[in-house]
Structures are given as C-alpha cells and as structure tokens.
C-alpha cells in the first residue's frame, strides 16, 4: 500500500445491532479502501468508541443509543478526539439526504468534506435500501395479518349462516363496498363483535 492510499484510508465505526445490515455496510465501505469496525452492543458504547478513536461513526437514526454518541461531541479532554455532529449547514443537501435516509454520522473535526461526502453517499444509498426493505417487510406483515383476519371472519360467517367459503367472502366484499371500507376493516369489526358475543 502506498503512502497516499494509506492517508486516504479512514477508520469508520458502524454502530449496528443487526449482523446482516452491518455486513451490508461493510460491503459498501471496504471497497472504498476504508477500515470498518462494527459495534453491535449498546453497553459501554461511549467507552468503546473512545478507545477505537475512529474518523467517522455511522449510526441508524432509529437506534436509541445515538444519544450516547452525542455525549462525545462535547468531550474535550486531552485524550478525547473531538467528534463533530454532522448537522453543519455547509453541506445542507447531504445532511438532508442523510436524515431522510435515516442515517446519522459523527465526524472528526477537520476531516476533508469531500472525503466525508464520499463515505456518506455510500452509506446513504445503503440506508435507503434498508428503509425500502423495512417498508416492504411492514407491508408484507400487514397483508399477512389482514389475510388472517379475513379468514377468521369468513369462518365466523360460514358457521353462523351455514354458507360456503366463496359466499362468505362475497358477503364480506359486498358489505365493504356498500360501506366504502376495506374488506379487512369489515372483517376486523366482525371478529371483534363475534368475540364480544361469544
């Protein structure tokens, strides 16, 4: 490794409890030539970051341990490397993108902005992907729950009215259309009501 590339190499700490996500971030940052360390545990976080003394710390905005890192932006003892909060107005676009993607970063004072920007661009892209995956997962989970509710509602109707499955579903759909509601909402109301009556 030449001196020049060594100087460009940054030490990045990722605070991330989920292994798959940590691995994904490593995969996007290591090819840029950086050293990446993952901290998964919330316990002793401030001490560990201080020991590692990285150039950049990346953390999910949804991670409650972010406030622990905030403490370090104030540390100014001789042994503490100052870590600056990434909300500087000098690069408002990048900060806005980072916040929208849900990633926050703590950066050593005096680091060249373009080097930070390159790391942030890569991290932002990954976090946008995580965000999409999280939304999709939530949508899938909701669809599954609705499916279960509709099945239970169908079961209640079939038993109470002595009708077949198709007919029960048609009844739910017709009621939903008449009331301008979703089938899942009608099913939920029926399941709740049946629970109260039984």
């Amino acid at each position: 490794m030449t001196g020049a590339t060594l100087a460009l190499r940054l030490h990045i700490v990722i605070v991330e409890p989920y292994e798959a996500r940590a691995r994904s971030l490593i995969e996007c940052l290591q090819p840029l030539g950086h050293q990446v360390t993952v901290i998964a545990e919330a316990a002793g976080l401030a001490r560990r970051v201080r020991e590692i003394a990285p150039d950049i710390v990346l953390i999910d905005m949804a991670n409650p341990s972010r406030d622990t890192l905030e403490e370090m932006t104030l540390a100014s003892g001789p042994l503490d490397r100052p870590v600056a909060l990434f909300v500087d107005r000098s690069d408002a676009d990048l900060t806005r993108q980072a916040i929208e993607a849900g990633v926050s970063a703590y950066v050593i004072d005096g680091l060249q902005p373009q080097r930070v920007a390159a790391v942030m661009d890569a991290a932002i892209a990954r976090f946008q992907m995580f965000r999409r995956m999280r939304l999709e997962l939530e949508a899938t989970r909701r669809a599954l729950e609705e499916r279960k509710l509709i099945d239970r509602a169908k079961g209640i109707l079939m038993k109470a009215r002595g009708i077949g499955e198709d007919e029960a579903y048609a009844l739910l759909r017709r009621t939903a259309m008449d009331q301008g509601r979703k089938i899942a909402e009608v099913a939920a109301a029926l399941v709740t009501a049946a629970g109260l009556l039984s």
Binding site: N63, P64, R66, E70, V87
Partner: peptide, 8 residues
Amino acid sequence: PSWASLRD
C-alpha cells in the same frame, strides 16, 4: 428513538 434524532 432519541433526543438527538428528535432535535434533528
């Protein structure tokens, strides 16, 4: 999830 995130 945190005060830092709420502030931001």
